[in-house]
Design a protein around this nucleic acid. Structure first.
Length: 471
RNA sequence: GGCCCUAUCGUCUAGUGGUAGGACAAUGCCCUCUCACGGCAUAAACAGGGGUUCAAUUCCCCUUGGGGCUACCA
């Protein structure tokens, strides 16, 4: 049997972390098995569905590298199919119209609860068909219910093992608002069958929908796919990361400088673990290693610090050139004009970045030095006059450099010998501050290499002037 | 309330019928002119109670904790 899975988001909000995780596990499963990954937009809720959210979902999946097979389907464009199946249910007396008002239902439920019963719809208007409804010309819109057969449904969940529900506790569920307004449980069942979905991999919040959907499958003579219910991703408060909250949108992660592969790597390890202790994966390695057997059962709390770590690991795994491409939106255009200088800047800041957004502040001084106080040039309690003397000597060494690449080995050696003689801190600290204008920066030799001879000599000269003014 | 799922360091987790390993975070030391990186080290967990067993973190039951569902959302 061909493996066909689907990701079926409802476009009622921006793509968020939880959605990505569901999509990811489906995608990894499909790619690992050599199957198909189908995208289905579940936009039956006309009030809340918006086209911009759908576009956001597609755009971000694409950005993450989660690619789909076949043209994405939209449920709002498949109403004929649902209507056909709804008619069939009516013909076979398995569905009926219900005109109870919410108030009536609430009264009924309360009465049941007061008797210690489980509240459920009793099915008092069980026989109305669409024709009768049309004839009656009722004013209230009504809903379509499915006659739930009392039955103990049990199914093997690929992650949890055997799961059992008693459908007698559900009552007759509402499957549509009208013949052309299907609801989730119904539309989803029809589509999974129509699209020949072999495995339904979804969040645990759907676990209790499964028996309802299986009863619908039974009533319509449709096959039952295999089910796998993923543990939920929880926030620090242990509540599920809700799609209705606007935080955790992928757009935010993208804007904050997270790499797609880092997000995917992080999410994969949230609820899944390989058989060894490997943690940092490339995407092909993830596809290769994934197995649904090793998915966790309990919910996992989302830990942003570990995401940062994955991001820094994935940033380092990139070549300088690749990183430059990713960095493009995170730097002023001017920085991009000198490719060689940019690449050198990236090389030296690469392992200092937790996110792409860090690049600008880490590399800023390379492109233009900020003003700094003369006092910053002195190492610890060194006398300004002494610091000046060191810098002047360093300037002489640098100016004498006539090698092809700066700094030449001769220059470096001279510098280090001088530093060894006069005290490393006393010489290297002022040089480094002169070159970077900052208390914290990469080392002086690295800086000389990034900046090149003329710029280095210029900056040291400026530092000397600063000291002279201060004296 | 009912139904269902679930339970190893703070967090993500490995693991086995013979008392626990990794990672992130934290702390300390080393490297070092600073920061970052790196290296080394420390602290840190089997929710509780019953069984089964020579032996239980591991198997079973109960309790407790956490979560999900209980929509004319998905």
């Amino acid at each position: 049997m061909e493996v066909r899975v689907r990701f079926a988001p409802s476009p009622t909000g921006f793509l968020h972390i939880g959605g990505v995780r569901t999509a990811l596990f489906n995608w990894l499963f499909a790619r690992h098995e050599g199957g198909k990954f189908i995208l289905r937009i579940e936009d039956t809720d006309k009030q809340r569905s918006e086209r911009r959210f759908e576009e956001d979902i597609l755009k971000n999946l694409e950005w993450l590298g989660i690619d789909w097979d076949e043209e994405p389907a939209r449920q709002s464009e498949r109403l004929d199919l649902y209507e056909k199946n709804l008619k069939r249910l009516f013909d076979e007396h398995k569905a009926y119209y219900c005109f109870c008002t919410p108030e009536e239902l609430e009264d009924e439920y309360e009465a049941q609860m007061s008797q210690g019963l489980v509240p459920k719809y009793s099915g008092k208007c069980r026989s109305l068909t669409p024709e009768q409804v049309a004839m009656k010309q009722l004013k209230t819109p009504g809903v379509i219910r499915f006659k739930m057969r009392d039955h103990v449904v049990s199914f093997p969940d690929m992650i949890r093992g055997k799961v059992e529900f008693n459908t007698a506790l559900f009552g007759d569920i509402i499957i549509a608002k009208s013949m052309r307004e299907p609801l989730y449980n119904f539309a989803s069942v029809i589509d999974d069958a129509d699209m020949k979905i072999s495995h339904v991999i979804r969040g645990e919040e759907h676990l209790s929908n499964t028996p309802k959907q299986m009863m619908l499958q039974e009533a319509l003579g449709l096959p039952t796919p295999k089910y796998a219910h993923l543990p939920l991703i929880l926030g620090a408060d242990k509540k599920k990361l809700s799609k209705r909250v606007l935080t955790n949108s992928l757009n935010d992660y993208r804007a904050q400088g997270y790499l797609p592969s880092a997000i995917i790597n992080f999410l994969m390890l949230l609820g899944w673990h390989p058989s060894d202790d490997k943690e940092v994966f490339t995407v092909p390695e993830m596809v290769q290693a994934f197995s649904i057997k090793r998915v966790q059962k309990a919910g996992a709390i989302y830990n942003p610090e570990k995401l940062d770590w994955f991001n820094s690991m994935h940033i380092r795994a990139l070549s300088d050139k690749e990183l430059a491409e990713y960095l493009k939106p995170f730097m002023p255009e001017a920085w991009y004009s000198d490719t060689n200088r940019l690449l050198r800047a990236i090389a030296v800041t690469k392992e200092r970045m937790k996110s792409l957004a860090d690049f600008q502040k880490e590399a800023e001084f390379i492109f233009s030095i900020a003003d700094y106080p003369a006092s910053m040039l002195a190492w610890k309690n060194a006398a300004p006059a002494k610091t000046l003397e060191h810098l002047e000597h360093v300037s002489e060494i640098l100016s004498a450099d006539n090698g092809t690449t700066f700094p030449s080995e001769h220059t470096t050696t001279a510098l280090m010998e001088y530093a060894a003689k006069e005290g490393r801190g006393d010489v290297l600290w002022p040089l480094r501050v002169a070159l970077s204008g900052r208390e914290n920066s990469p080392g002086p030799t690295e800086l000389l290499r990034i900046l090149g001879g003329p710029e280095s000599i210029k900056r040291v000269g400026e530092a000397i002037q600063k000291l002279k003014h201060a004296l």
